[in-house]
Amino acid sequence: MVLTVRSVTTVDVDAVLTSLQEADPLWFVAALCLFQGLGIVRSLRWQLLLENVGYTVHGDSRIGSITELTRIIYLGWFANCVTVARLGDVYRCSVLHRSTDADISVTAGTVLTERIVDIAILVVALVATVIVVFWGDVPPAVLQATMIGTGLLIVVISGLLVIDRAGRSFDRWLPSRVQRIYRRVRRGTVDSLDRYPQLVGYTAIGWLFEGMTMYLVGVALGVDLSFGGAFVAALVGVLLSTIPITPGGLGVTEAGIALVLGWVGLDPTAVAAVTICYRLISYWSVVGIGVTVYAIGLWYPISLSVNRRTRSTDQL
C-alpha cells in the first residue's frame, strides 16, 4: 500500500474522481465480463490437464463439469486474494479432492504445470510486446519486470527438467511416505504436459483476455491507451501479482501498473483512474464473487465425480 500511495502522490484526487464518474459504464461492464470469462478458459485448461493424468471429470448435476470447475477456480482465486504464498492453489486442490476424491498430490502436479505454462507464455508474450511498444527505449521498471519473469522461467523449466530426468533416481533417497507423495506430484506435473497446442492455446487466450481487459478499461475512461501499452501493463501487473508477499499482489501490482502506464504516455490522472478501474475488476471483483461462490457452496456443495484411467504408476 505504501508503494501505491507513493506512486500517486502527485495525483489530483478530485480529477481522478471526476474521471471515474465520467467513465462509460457499458465499456466498463464489457471489461468486467471479459475478465470473468477468464475463469471459464482456466477451467477448460484445468479439465484438459486432469484428462492428461487420467482423470475425466463429470458434473453430477445439470450445470455440468465446467461450471463446477469454474466454481473451484474462483474459490482458488479468492483464496489467493486474501492470503499470501499462493495458498489458493493449495485450497483449489483440496476442494477438488473433497468433491471427487481425486488424489490431491496428482492434482497439485497439474496446478504446478499450470504455473509453469503460465510463466512461459507470459514471459514470451511480455518480451515480444515490450520490443514492439518500447523499441529502443525500454523503461527500467519494464526491463526489471521482464528480467524477473525470465529468471522465473529459467527456474521453473530447470525444475521441470530435474523432475522429469532425475526424478526416478532422486525419489529413492526419500522416506517411503514422502516418496509416494513425490511420485504422485511428479506424475501430475510430467504427465499433464501433453496436448501442447490446446494447452498453449488456452493459456494464450487467457493472457489475451488480461490485455483486452486493460484496453477496454482505457476505452471506458476515454484515455489514449494503445492495445500494446495496455497489454504490457496488464502482463507486468500479472507478473508482479505472482510474487507471494502480499495477498493477490496488493500494493505491488498497482505500483507496477502505474509505472508502466506512465511510461506509455498517460498523465497522472489517467494513470490513477485506469489503475483503480483495472484493479476493481482484477482484484476486488474476484473478492466479491469469491465470497458469493463460497456462500453458495455452503448450501449447494460442488458436485463432481471423476473416472480414473488406470496406469501402472497409480499404485506407487
Rank of each mutant, 00 (worst) to 15 (best):
M1C: 12
L3R: 04
V8F: 13
V8Q: 11
D14Q: 14
D14I: 07
T18R: 14
S19E: 14
E22C: 09
D24H: 12
L26E: 14
F28I: 10
V29R: 11
L32M: 14
C33I: 15
F35Y: 15
Q36Y: 14
L38H: 15
S43A: 14
Q47T: 10
L48I: 09
L49G: 03
L50I: 01
T56F: 15
V57K: 03
H58G: 10
S61D: 13
S65D: 15
E68A: 06
T70G: 13
G76W: 00
G76T: 02
G76S: 04
F78K: 03
T83A: 06
T83R: 04
V84Y: 10
G88S: 09
Y91W: 13
R92Q: 09
R92T: 04
C93E: 03
S94T: 14
T100R: 06
D103K: 02
I104Y: 04
S105E: 07
A108K: 01
A108R: 01
T110M: 11
V111R: 01
V111Q: 03
V111Y: 03
E114Y: 06
V117F: 04
I121C: 07
V123Y: 07
A128T: 12
V130H: 02
I131F: 12
V132Q: 11
V132T: 12
W135R: 13
P139T: 01
G151K: 05
L152I: 05
L152A: 11
L153R: 05
S158V: 12
G159C: 10
L161F: 13
V162Q: 08
D164H: 14
G167P: 04
F170V: 12
D171E: 14
L174C: 05
V178G: 09
R180N: 13
Y182Q: 04
R184I: 00
V185H: 03
V185T: 08
V190K: 00
L193W: 10
Y196T: 14
V200S: 08
G201S: 11
Y202K: 01
T203A: 04
A204F: 12
G206Q: 05
E210N: 14
T213Y: 02
T213L: 03
M214R: 06
L216W: 06
G218P: 06
L221T: 03
V223K: 02
D224R: 06
L225T: 00
L225I: 01
A234E: 00
A234P: 00
L239V: 06
L240E: 03
I243G: 05
P247V: 08
G248M: 02
A255S: 13
I257W: 02
A258P: 01
L259S: 09
L259A: 12
V260N: 01
V271E: 07
A272V: 03
A272P: 02
A273I: 02
V274Q: 12
I276Y: 03
C277R: 08
C277W: 07
W284C: 03
S285Y: 04
V286K: 05
V287S: 04
I289M: 14
G297M: 12
Y300N: 14
Y300H: 15
P301I: 06
P301G: 06
S303W: 07
S305R: 13
S305D: 09
S312R: 15
T313R: 12
D314N: 07
